[in-house]
């Protein structure tokens, strides 16, 4: 266990160096937050009908999303891609450590590093533009717990994306599909409550929803703090399922791996 923590720690330290990327990230998050705010404002102004979420709530939702976007944004592990291309992925098999958990640890660090650098500045700036506080302290705690669970789910998903890269030709497609689906179904495209009613049950069955939308609704109080338990259970179930599937897939991948080189 300590070995995997060490791996995660090393990767985290390495990624914390990326100041320019973090700064650029903060700028673009603010940019996008503002764009989204304006778009939704225009929509809300166009209709007097009552909506599942009020505009101020949407604003809070948007800024929460921008602050924690690092959880879902990005691409599959670059190092894995390079490893597959040059054939050095064979070295991974030779090390006396479980490959899946090694990659999982690296992915956690990769998800956490940019978020750690960006979340506070973006939240602060969001507050200037309308990010509201949670109704109760319990809601805030529920949000934090939900976000922690979200980290696990999203890491499992991203690890899966990395594993699919081992299938050099078709894997690229899957590795792209996972984050795009995640983006669409996690609430960044449209807040889930604003999606048409028939879509809601489908979306809430998938894991992507618990990465962003569920914690945000906990924050807003739409889902009361007591509801956090079910959310966490949902996240845990999906995490376990994705981990098991990922491990199985990895085993198959290494079985059929062709190492290139002269």
């Amino acid at each position: 266990m300590t070995a995997y923590l060490a791996i995660a720690g090393a990767r985290l330290r390495a990624l914390l160096q990326y100041r320019a990327a973090a700064a650029a990230g903060i700028v673009t998050h603010i940019f996008w937050g503002l764009i989204r705010m304006m778009i939704f404002e225009a929509f809300y102004r166009s209709s007097a009908a009552a909506q599942p979420m009020s505009y101020p709530e949407v604003v809070t939702y948007i800024w929460l999303g921008q602050a924690t976007l690092a959880l879902t944004l990005g691409s599959a592990d670059m190092d894995v891609r390079a490893m597959v291309r040059t054939g050095t992925v064979a070295y991974e098999m030779v090390r006396p450590m479980d490959v899946y958990w090694t990659w999982f640890s690296r992915t956690i660090a990769a998800r956490l590093a940019p978020m750690a650098l960006q979340v506070v500045p973006v939240l602060l700036i969001g507050a200037m533009f309308g990010l509201g506080p949670p109704p109760t302290v319990a809601s805030a705690a529920a949000w934090a717990a939900g976000t922690a669970g979200a980290l696990l789910v999203t890491t499992a998903l991203w690890t899966l994306a990395s594993i699919s890269l081992l299938w050099t030709i078709s894997g690229e497609g899957v590795a792209r599909l996972i984050p795009t689906l995640g983006y669409c179904f996690c609430g960044m495209l449209i807040p889930i409550p604003l999606m048409p009613p028939w879509a809601q049950p489908i979306v809430t069955a998938l894991p992507f929803w618990t990465v962003m939308d569920a914690p945000f609704r906990l924050y807003l109080g739409h889902i009361p703090p007591e509801g956090a338990g079910i959310i966490l259970l949902h996240q845990l179930a999906w995490t376990v399922g994705l981990v098991l599937f990922g491990r199985w897939l990895l085993g198959r991948a290494f079985g059929r791996l062709v190492v290139q080189g002269g």
Binding site: G9, L12, R13, A14, L16, Q17, R19, L117
Partner: peptide, 16 residues
């Protein structure tokens, strides 16, 4: 240059 350890990494955020 980068300082070793977590403290160094965080310090590296501000001054290079």
């Amino acid at each position: 240059e980068r300082e070793a350890g977590m403290v160094g990494a965080v310090r590296g955020l501000v001054r290079r």
